[in-house]
Design a protein around this nucleic acid. Sequence first.
DNA 1: CTGAAAGCGCTTACAG
DNA 2: CTGAAAGCGCTTACAG
Lengths: 364, 364
Amino acid sequence: MTPPPRVTITQVAAEAGVSTATAGRVLGGYGYASSEVATRVEAAARKLGYKPNTLARGLVTGRSQTIGVVAADIDNAFYARVLRGIGDVARPRGFGVILTNSDENLEREREAVQLLLEKRVDGLIISPCDVQGPEHLRSLIAGGIPTVQVDRAAYDLAADSVTVDNRGAAREAIAHLLETGHKRIGIIAELEQTESASLEDFVAQAPYSPVAAETLYPSWQRLLGYLDAHRDAGVPVQTRLIRRAGAYSSEAARSEAIRLLEYGHRPTAVFAADGTMAHGLMQAIASLKLKVPDQLSVVCFDDLEWMTFMQPAITAIHQPVHRIGSLAAELLLARIAGEASVPKHNVLEARLNKRDSVGPPPRM
Amino acid sequence: MTPPPRVTITQVAAEAGVSTATAGRVLGGYGYASSEVATRVEAAARKLGYKPNTLARGLVTGRSQTIGVVAADIDNAFYARVLRGIGDVARPRGFGVILTNSDENLEREREAVQLLLEKRVDGLIISPCDVQGPEHLRSLIAGGIPTVQVDRAAYDLAADSVTVDNRGAAREAIAHLLETGHKRIGIIAELEQTESASLEDFVAQAPYSPVAAETLYPSWQRLLGYLDAHRDAGVPVQTRLIRRAGAYSSEAARSEAIRLLEYGHRPTAVFAADGTMAHGLMQAIASLKLKVPDQLSVVCFDDLEWMTFMQPAITAIHQPVHRIGSLAAELLLARIAGEASVPKHNVLEARLNKRDSVGPPPRM
DNA sequence: CTGAAAGCGCTTACAG
DNA sequence: CTGAAAGCGCTTACAG
């Protein structure tokens, strides 16, 4: 089991009877070479089974042709799709993708970034787990590493981002419910991270203050859209109908949903702010034996892409998840190629799938 | 926007007033150094913000501390989980993970392996898309690159593999249905790749010939378990009840399911060989307005982990998907560390979740 | 168009 | 325990 020695450019050069510099020029595709020499070198390379050592190349060029990705949780269909989008762009451009996971943990995120830096990635795509004060990200940017954020954008960070118009899509969905005649619309959202204000303050103030929505966590953005739609329609918001799971957990969502639905004056529609919340909600609906949409209309933000798949009775908002990844990769590669411009927040539209109808509110 | 020059070990050495060799010894954690010198070097490194260049290290040591993964389709929850398992093992051991996708396409797979080799991964984990004659994999192994296969094992390849006992789990599931009284049990399976024999020949011969099950594609293995259980129970197999979708597509599964269920003498139970088949089946069931499990019992191999999640009325077989990834990574790292042993096919057990009951066959 | 030389940032024997 | 020297496999100016 002796690991056969890898063939180097020196051996190829010797075999072809040229210098390593010349061999490098034809094999690496840089500089000039007569076609006669080129064919000889190529033949030698093929004969010996030469494969370039990109580590050595990277050492001298300073570019590794590799991008790093810090996903929050690969195990989540959302990130899996983002990753697919990234890979689809990186592959044809000859870039490798190094994958890491932060699990929404700041310490992990730091380690991940550190690992990627040591591997000398040319740039990185990250879902920052702290949108408030990511010091290590700030020093990353200061260090000149091209960086693109996905899914969320850290406040005041001079880096591109690709996010979804969570606020707009939620607003559209709730507006649709209001137009259909619903007046009591519940919302179940993660709302884990505490923003500066309490939930109550947020509800009271947010719709009237110019919040920089793209630097809020997605679930807060979606709540904002919910509030927007109510304000637009002149329908007062009932705090009782806003349920905060406090964790990205369907179990937590389920108990909040039960609390919401057992309430005497039950809502006629519920908006689940993400796929996990929707899952908890559907469990609650099943255990209470409610019929959708006859007794209750359901709309959800379908980031996991399960709902429409498995539950045709509910209306979902689709995100262009693959596009989040591919656009992020395109932006990153442009930066790496040196195309400088001011960092930009790119907001993609999410689409409300109206084909699956929302039912009218049931008579009481 | 001038990319600030990275600090090298030479600068750290100068700052600490030692040679680069010594600086390397303390920073790299190899060789001896007096504690006095060590602290001085560490202080200098911290002061300058030194980060080792692992490309340079890899060039000289010949090890990149990186493993390559060729997934069939990252966008599939199964591979996402496998990846998570791999990452969970690789991270604490300081290994990076480079991810590629084959999309079940041989040409893509070749390119992916090529890319990983050029990045000088220390080993790789792959879901071979061709279990028959993977020449490029054979030469990979011959080249001495530690390799572990997951989900399937190519025939006659001298490499470790981690797979699931598809045959045993399917057999157990079908046996459970037979014990509950079902006599007509349908099966919907992908069965895309043509094995040596035709489907009919396979059905006729397989249970009686000593097939090397681990080198069949998963869906064929599952069909084998279906046949096993019938033979064990002395229940004759009806070819009519075996439906081959011919593609990993829920659309194809749906039409086969409709054909199966509209059949005059309808089966009383159906086994879906994977999550996608189950999805197509559930759509067919919905459009035919059949009640599960009252009119039809359903068991599925739940590789996508959706079914149990979304459809409590069906019984699912769970695979230890995370474990597939973590075990593969453990094996690979052991190989990389030089722990030689004969390549082994590791078969993990899949568990039939019986808590969700299978109904008895309906009276006709 | 081609080659000799230097160097990318580390680690590895080898002296001392 | 520490340092000077060589070298990993490439690419990059610089001559010719």
